[in-house]
Design a protein around this nucleic acid. Structure first.
Lengths: 237, 237
DNA sequence: TAAATAGTGTCTCTAAGACATTATGTG
DNA sequence: CACATAATGTCTTAGAGACACTATTTA
């Protein structure tokens, strides 16, 4: 690795530990949830924490996030996006630890979650009812992740990650409402989503109590480079 | 530091090195520039690079960014914002190095830049005419920083960082044009900025060849929590 | 036919963009 | 006065939001 060791001494600087932590969201019975693990060891044993762990030297940050998520919770094949790097000095009592935080979003029904032997339990928590005490500065990370998720929703196609292969337009609307935390107008939603040309109609329908619903498929390739797909901000202050 | 050393072994994991790198922007003769330093040592000796360096164990990331910027370039008292953390495995030939990148923005005339003994030179480069070969993956970091700066401009009051205490509305418009890389309509700009209520009129004027200009002062406290102050996107594709 | 849910139509109003016009200084 | 630059006014249009209406199923 070192081609000219005479000029560089890798031990000259003390190094911090680095973890990746993944805030993973899903929708369960129409409500936004995050996945937390209950720690088995010191520090913060017994506390709930964002899943994550130390990086290896031979993997990228994103790979590390993916690996830790799978190891600690069983969750796999997710969309991952870097959120922020937290590096205050006293945030971990063990030693100096930086945390590179990621956001992920999955369909809960497509995942089997399980605890690893590093943790006592793994559980989905509604974001409106998180545990009182959370390990490290993970409450701060969570708050930041939630606010980022909301704003991301407005100019990306993130919400589709939460939907199955085919879905109705009103289901999609429901997801927006849950994450944004506000009601949206049905007519305006239909208009916008149709204009966006992101959906492809299928021949399928689903029967319910009233008129059956047409089902649609998401066509990510049609999003192309056009940003700001959605901007549902009906008179928000 | 370790309260229960029996359960935690800090040497269990190998640790990466961590640097902070700061992409610092300014406007010089109406054009957007970034500050680069020319490296004195291996690796990439002689190449231009984003200023930065290894973090100390007892300082936060933001403090480290501030310190490195001052040490390497003499630039101080800047607005700093975290950009992204770069962590691909082979990005530094010495060893595994993560870079936590920051963006800063300053008025060039308020800064005295100077090289440290770690570097051969320090210089402002126009973003439209950067050096051909840049150290590490710093070209990627630069590209990302520029794109982030542009989008930030639309919903923050970042641009005011580049202005002196008092300034004219057309000067402000000019900054927007330079950073966004497009012409803006004068009338619409006046309308928007007046509506925003971010400026306070002074009694000052400045004489030029034509009608003298009124000068204004930025009132950051009026921005309050309202986001999306600007959205100058006159028919951009 | 009533209830339930899906889906469409349309009016209003704001704000963006284009562009014309007026204002106020200098030589 | 002509010229230069600053500042304001106004017309058009697209799109957001509100909300009323129609459609299609089951009980």
């Amino acid at each position: 690795m070192q081609e000219r060791p005479e000029t560089y001494d890798p031990t000259r600087y003390e190094r911090p530990s680095v973890t990746v932590d993944v805030v993973i969201f899903t929708l369960i019975s129409q409500e936004l949830h995050v996945l937390l693990v209950q720690r088995r060891h010191w520090p913060f044993d017994g506390f709930w924490a964002i899943p994550g762990g130390f990086i290896n030297m031979n993997e990228s940050l994103r790979d590390a996030a993916r690996r830790e998520l799978e190891e600690e919770t069983g969750v796999r094949d997710v969309y991952l996006e870097q959120l922020y790097t937290f590096g205050e000095v006293g945030r971990d009592p063990r030693t100096r630890v930086l945390s590179v935080a990621y956001i992920a979003i999955v369909r809960a029904d497509a995942q089997k979650i399980r605890a690893s032997d590093e943790s006592l339990d793994v559980r989905w928590f509604p974001v409106r009812d998180l545990p009182e005490h959370i390990a490290f500065d993970h409450d701060e990370i969570l708050a930041y992740a939630i606010s980022r998720l909301r704003s991301k929703l407005e100019y990306t196609t993130l919400a589709f990650q939460l939907l199955p292969e085919v879905f109705s337009i009103l289901e999609l609307k429901h997801i927006y409402e849950q994450i944004l935390g506000e009601k949206l107008d049905k007519g305006n939603f239909y208009r916008k989503i149709k204009e966006s040309d992101l959906l492809e109609e299928t021949t399928l329908t689903r029967e319910g109590r009233g008129r059956p619903t047409r089902l649609w498929r998401f066509r990510p390739e049609r999003a192309g480079d056009k940003q700001f797909v959605f901007r549902w901000r009906e008179d928000r202050k």
